[in-house]
Design a protein around this nucleic acid. Structure first.
Length: 915
DNA sequence: ACCCATTCCTA
DNA sequence: GTAGGAATGGGTA
């Protein structure tokens, strides 16, 4: 239940009655004076924007949603044709401000609702009602008294122009009746402006008097006979009208809305568009604010703009004596949760030596414990082994929870000292990643700036930069202590802020707790264990390649009649397009004539040089990137290669791999596969590779619910052949190789959010034909089309898309004015739910497989690599059959979707054979 | 020493 | 057409 409480107070829903403020701002004299140099009035725009800004300031954690009336008639006109018939038409100089205002609000990233057929009040009422049911606190910002009927213990009104807030007691005080009597009150009085009939001569005083006496409108009606005097006659005259008036005054609580209340969330501001609009309407303050908030508002993190470097407040200690250390040990032992960081000599976890550790148990209270600083005249420090021995039981105690920034690194480093870090509960890097995967960076300095408004001490300030950069052991304790202690302190503070935000978003905390956080430990194990590589074989291949490359180089120089660097695109352009005058088939993004593979392929049909270049490129790539480099990456100590999996890089939720990148090892060519053959297993072990078959297309079937696709997968058909059969209207067994190839291109294109143009280029066919294929596809699989369209619309409304497990990807450019960027964002919107769900699935599978491996205590098995849809293991020969079955089952059952997941598994002496 | 453009490897 | 990492050359500081 505490979660609920957090949720309600952390992010109140702020519903802004845009139309009500628009009219009021329009009539404010000093705002009326505002207009652009070319005569476009902007007073109402300014008024509403100021009002929104002041709301954001007053409720920094609030989730602001703006609602406007739509044009045209509403259901109230159907009930009563005279409704609002007295209203003069909207003045032109107000009307022209509406669209710009909408655009600005959208560019600010705020959800904007304009629903036809109902009024803004009804939309607001519905959301307030939904929010109450979810226990979300709601604040309605309006100048309209009618809204008082919506006030409950969870819903209050704020009049931002007068800064008066109304809760239940406030409504009673102001109107003399309770919120649930407001409709009756309004019905009795009627409304001149809206042309709602009421009781003639009945104003607020009379209405309150009657309602105080009889409680409800129905009781007033029932007792109408006993009301004396002229006013009694008026009441009796109005009896027939009153039910209608009541209905007209009632704000709907059940409007059908395109976005559910829990999905109402701000998207990142579109800075470019905001500035453009600001300039167009000459709104200086808007431009200034847009620039100020650029990059910091995804999602809005505006509460912490001003706190700059409060380090003086903090109490940072340097631990040099046994006594100080014991003191801290006691604190840590009794702490439920503390922030923790290691300082080391290298960014590479295999080489890193620990120089010191820092802790923080409470904000502004942190310590640095150095033990490896060895610069000249360094003060005497505690003994490393002794310190680590004493810390070990605390660090290995899963009950004592730890917070850290990128703790996978610390876990790996500690493993080199035989400390198995446990109780890793919160990694701020991963918290930030799950909250917003596209935030510029998830490093601590950026996070501190974004979420705390604090500028931390940059590493370069203490260590210098470039070749002369010092390692941490060379840094004086005077400099190291504030830097290192701050790391722990800031990490704790960051967690306090980001975790709250994560919990307030539906299911994001779940993605963090159930996927990313536990996965971090699994990845650490894979990294530490590493993969075995046959450097002998790669060395041999390097030699073979070198010889062949030399020959090709010579041939190329002869053909070009001059020496040149075959690896230089620039020199190559000169040779091909200036000297030899070959046709330019394609240009690079910068406008230079391209020499890319596809161009060379085309040119090779008519000229000899391009073919040589293609082979040269392919081979030198293999040599430079793989056969030369991989052996150099073998760790001396373990004899294996240890990659780093990056868990907070890919916007879609995928992992990435560096140093070396094990996720782009060649497979497509024979020569390339020789590199794969160098990935081997220990004696007595085999390499086992298990990959999900067509996982993204399966996810597309699940997400779209298309019956044709679902059937094809359930029937276990080859999906590309099945697609070809449908699209080209050919019996399944008569589909040609060509047809299947085309269908495959269509299927992949769909996953990438393709256009007909893209498909035509891929298949090298006219755009018209590509369009025809796509039309045919969507005719056969109509739900796929609907899904794609819906996804685009949803992305534009919300500013983000989600995976099946609710991981989010924000798309700041989904409403960009630049068509290219907007289109790119739309493609990403289509792709991300599929790629991201696939990432979620394999991550869950990794957790399941790791659980099982742990349960058998690594008996003859290790998980060694992940390549997006594939897991690679090293398995003892005797266990091969048994374990392959278990892995297949764990992966296939990792999640439950509307289509079966199929895993293909194989084994061999090397990675190539395992496929 | 660092950044950018180009190219090419993977799912 | 999606998502990544890395190597190269070539320019800049």
């Amino acid at each position: 239940m505490t979660n609920q409480a957090n949720l309600t107070t952390a992010t109140p829903l702020i519903l802004v009655d845009g139309s009500s403020y628009l009219f009021r701002a329009y009539h404010v004299p000093y705002l009326q004076a505002l207009s652009t140099s070319y005569g476009q009035p902007t007073g109402a725009i300014t008024g509403v924007l100021n009002m929104i800004k002041s709301l954001q300031k007053d409720y920094p954690t609030g989730n602001v949603v703006v609602v406007f009336d739509a044009k045209g008639k509403t259901f109230r006109n159907d009930l009563y044709p005279e409704y609002k018939a007295n209203r003069p038409p909207m003045p032109d100089d107000l009307r022209t401000q509406i669209e710009p205002l909408h655009n600005i609000i959208k560019a600010m990233g705020l959800p904007l609702l304009v629903i036809e057929g109902v009024e803004a009040d009804d939309v607001i009422g519905t959301y307030a009602h939904q929010a109450s049911q979810l226990g979300i606190e709601t604040i309605i910002s309006t100048g309209d008294k009618d809204m008082a009927q919506l006030v409950t213990p969870h819903v209050r009104l704020i009049n931002t122009m007068t800064n008066v807030e109304l809760d239940e007691a406030g409504v009673l005080e102001k109107f003399g009746v309770k919120p649930d009597q407001i409709i009756d009150y309004l019905a009795l009085m009627g409304d001149k402006v809206d042309n709602i009939p009421g009781v003639n001569k009945c104003g607020p005083k009379t209405a309150v008097k009657w309602l105080t006496e009889h409680k409800t409108l129905n009781q007033v009606i029932a007792n109408a006979g006993s009301v004396k005097g002229k006013i009694g006659e008026h009441l009796r005259d109005a009896l027939d009208q009153l039910p209608l008036s009541y209905e007209l005054a009632t704000i709907k609580l059940n409007v059908e809305l395109p976005i559910q209340v829990q999905d109402l969330a701000a998207s990142p501001q579109d800075t470019e568009r905001l500035i453009e609009l600001g300039k167009q309407f000459e709104l200086k303050r808007l431009v200034a604010d847009a620039e100020k908030n650029a990059g910091t508002s995804q999602p809005s993190t505006n509460e912490a703009q001003s706190v700059k470097a409060e380090a003086s407040k903090a109490n940072y200690e340097c631990i040099l004596t046994e006594k100080e250390f014991d003191n801290w040990l006691t604190k840590l032992q009794s702490a439920e949760l503390f922030a923790f960081d290691t300082e080391t000599t290298s960014l590479n976890y295999m080489d890193a030596e620990i120089v010191g550790v820092s802790f923080s148990v409470a904000e502004n209270e942190a310590a640095y414990l150095p033990f490896g600083h060895d610069y000249l005249d360094a003060p005497e420090q505690l003994d490393r082994n002794e310190v680590l021995n004493k810390l070990k039981p605390i660090l290995e105690n899963a009950k004592i929870k730890k917070i850290g920034q990128h703790l996978k690194y610390d876990k790996n480093v500690l493993a080199n000292y035989d400390i198995n870090l446990q109780g890793v509960a919160f990694d701020t890097m991963l918290e930030s990643y799950v909250l917003n995967s596209i935030a510029t960076k998830h490093n601590m300095d950026s996070l501190a700036n974004t979420y705390l408004g604090v500028d931390t001490i940059p590493f370069e300030d203490v260590a210098g930069k470039g070749a002369k950069q010092l390692t941490f052991n060379q840094i004086t304790l005077e400099e190291a202590t504030p830097y290192a202690a701050e790391d722990a302190d800031i990490t704790l503070k960051l967690h306090n802020v980001i975790w709250k935000k994560l919990q307030s978003e539906p299911n994001l905390a779940k993605v963090f707790e159930e996927i990313e956080m536990p996965l971090s430990g699994v990845l650490a194990k894979m990294e530490q264990f590493g993969v075995l590589i046959d450097s002998q074989q790669l060395g041999q291949q390097s030699q073979d390649l070198a010889a062949r490359i030399m020959t090709l180089e010579k041939e190329a120089h002869e053909l070009a009649e001059q020496e040149f660097n075959l690896s230089s695109p620039k020199q190559l352009q000169e040779i091909l397009y200036t000297k030899m005058d070959l046709p330019v088939l394609k240009k690079t993004p910068k406008g230079a004539p391209s020499t890319a593979e596809e161009v060379l392929q085309e040119l090779a049909l008519n000229y000899p040089l391009p073919k040589i270049l293609m082979e040269y490129r392919g081979l030198s790539k293999l040599k430079n990137t793989y056969t030369d480099k991989l052996p150099k990456m073998i760790n001396m100590r373990t004899g294996r290669v240890h990659t780093s999996y990056h868990q907070a890089i890919a916007a879609t939720g995928r992992l990435s791999s560096t140093e070396p990148n094990l996720q782009n090892i060649p497979i497509r060519t024979e020569e390339g596969r020789r590199v794969r053959q160098a990935f081997i297993a220990r004696d007595g072990y085999k390499v086992v590779a298990a990959d999900y078959s067509q996982i993204e297309l399966r996810i597309m079937a699940h997400l779209s619910g298309d019956s044709g696709l679902l059937e094809a997968f359930s029937a276990g058909k080859d999906i590309h052949t099945a697609t070809a059969s449908e699209v080209f209207d050919t019996p399944l067994d008569q589909v040609s190789v060509e047809q299947r190839r085309n269908a495959k291109a269509i299927n992949f294109g769909l996953i990438y959010g393709m256009s007909a143009f893209g498909l035509s280029r891929q298949l090298n066919i006219p755009r018209h034909d590509a369009q025809k294929y796509m039309d045919l596809y969507f005719e056969r699989y109509p739900a796929v089309l609907t899904y794609m369209e819906d996804t685009r619309v949803l992305a534009k409304e919300k500013g983000y898309v989600s995976t099946v497990f609710d991981r989010r990807l924000y798309l700041p450019e989904i409403n960009a004015s630049n068509g290219m960027r907007r289109k790119a964002a739309e493609r990403a919107a289509i792709n991300a739910p599929m790629q991201g769900t696939a990432a979620d699935i394999i991550k869950k599978a990794m957790l399941a497989v790791d659980d099982w491996i742990e349960s058998i205590e690594n008996d003859g098995i290790r998980m060694i690599m992940q390549v997006h849809d594939e897991l690679v293991f090293e398995i003892k020969e005797q266990k091969l059959e048994e374990y392959q079955k278990i892995i297949t089952s764990l992966m296939e059952q990792a999640v439950s979707l509307d289509i079966p997941l199929i895993v293909e598994i194989g084994s061999g002496d090397n990675w190539d054979e395992a496929h």
